[in-house]
Amino acid sequence: MERGLYIAASGMLAEMARQDQLANDLANASTPGYKADRVAQRAFGDLLLSDSADGTTVGPLGSGAAIDKQETDLRQQAMRDTGQPLDLAIQGDGYFAIRTAGGVRYTRNGAFTADAKGTLVDQLGNQVLGKNNQPVKVTDGAVDATQVGVFKLANPVKQGDSYFTGTAGGQDSGEVRSGNLEGSGVDPARAMVDLMASMRAMEATQKAITTIDSTLQLTASQVGGLPG
């Protein structure tokens, strides 16, 4: 009986984690180059129940759920024309490479600017690498888009600050477009629906807990109680 309590509680925790993830997607609904996440739940291992009196098999019993898989939707999103020469977007595959203090990071967020030396930097002031792995020169407030490097990245993992890490793999085929930004990969309608569904699922699990609780209460207070 009390096993059911913990199974239901694990379901609630998984829904809460899903909501945290969706909140992050919604917070980034207009972050250029942001890639939305998808999470998948997995059931814990099933237990095989058997009748303790005669040993016959009753059937499997699930033992709860947890989120164990997260996938980032890396598809290219629609481009938005900004007219700003230092806003860059990649048409096709690949990432911009950024030289940070912690090593080279990759991003598809091309809201760049220039630094005091006239080199192209990202919003945190880190240098953007060109095709030759050298910083890109900004002349008269613009860059030669063909000089900006587009790099291949396998197994990208989000790092925050719009950066990805992964296994670098040389140049990629994408083409850099100046005056554009890639939109956020968040579909607000889908995220809202997911959020609502998750909340209802959580509500249902909570009902399961309270029901089990009432049954336990009856067991504790009424079974064995003498009438009168």
């Binding site: 993830q21 996440d37 967020n109 925050g160 719009s162």
Partner: peptide
């Protein structure tokens, strides 16, 4: 300019594969 923030492993309700922003 906009950016997302740090990601941490969401250990409650998920395994280490879950990274919450």
């Amino acid at each position: 300019a906009y950016r997302d923030l740090a990601y941490t492993a969401g250990t409650i309700g998920g395994t280490n594969a879950l990274r919450l922003g």
